[in-house]
């Protein structure tokens, strides 16, 4: 993965569904964001359904950002997202409070 080209803050707003059916779509989007921004804001307020594939995608994204020194922060997290991350033991690595 190349270094982020732009020094601007990117925003990713998730729709209501972040599951295996949407994983490939968001994978491309997140990859693009990593390539373009040193700082990325995630908006997960609208997430009403997230599954193991969606969470795993986010975990991969956070790890990649860390290695690329890209700052990630949550603008908002839905309860579904928080609860699913907690159930899966992923709150710490997803930096969900």
């Amino acid at each position: 993965m190349s270094e982020p080209a732009e020094n601007t803050e990117g925003l990713v707003t998730f729709d209501d569904t972040l599951d295996i059916t949407m994983a490939a779509t968001y994978f491309e989007k997140l990859t693009e964001m990593l390539n373009q921004h040193k700082s990325i804001v995630l908006d997960g307020e609208g997430i009403e359904r997230i599954d193991g594939a969606g969470l795993q995608l986010l975990v991969g994204f956070f790890k990649a950002a860390e290695s690329l020194h890209v700052t990630i922060k949550w603008q908002a997290c839905s309860d579904v997202l928080k609860k699913s991350a907690k159930l899966s033991g992923l709150t710490v690595c997803l930096e969900i409070k």
Partner: peptide, 23 residues
């Protein structure tokens, strides 16, 4: 319940297939 996820087998992001399970 307490749940600990093992992330060590997760590949580099660009090499991930988002439909496969790694954790």
């Amino acid at each position: 319940m307490e749940n600990s996820a093992d992330l060590t087998t997760l590949p580099e992001f660009t090499l991930m297939d988002p439909e496969l399970s790694y954790l």
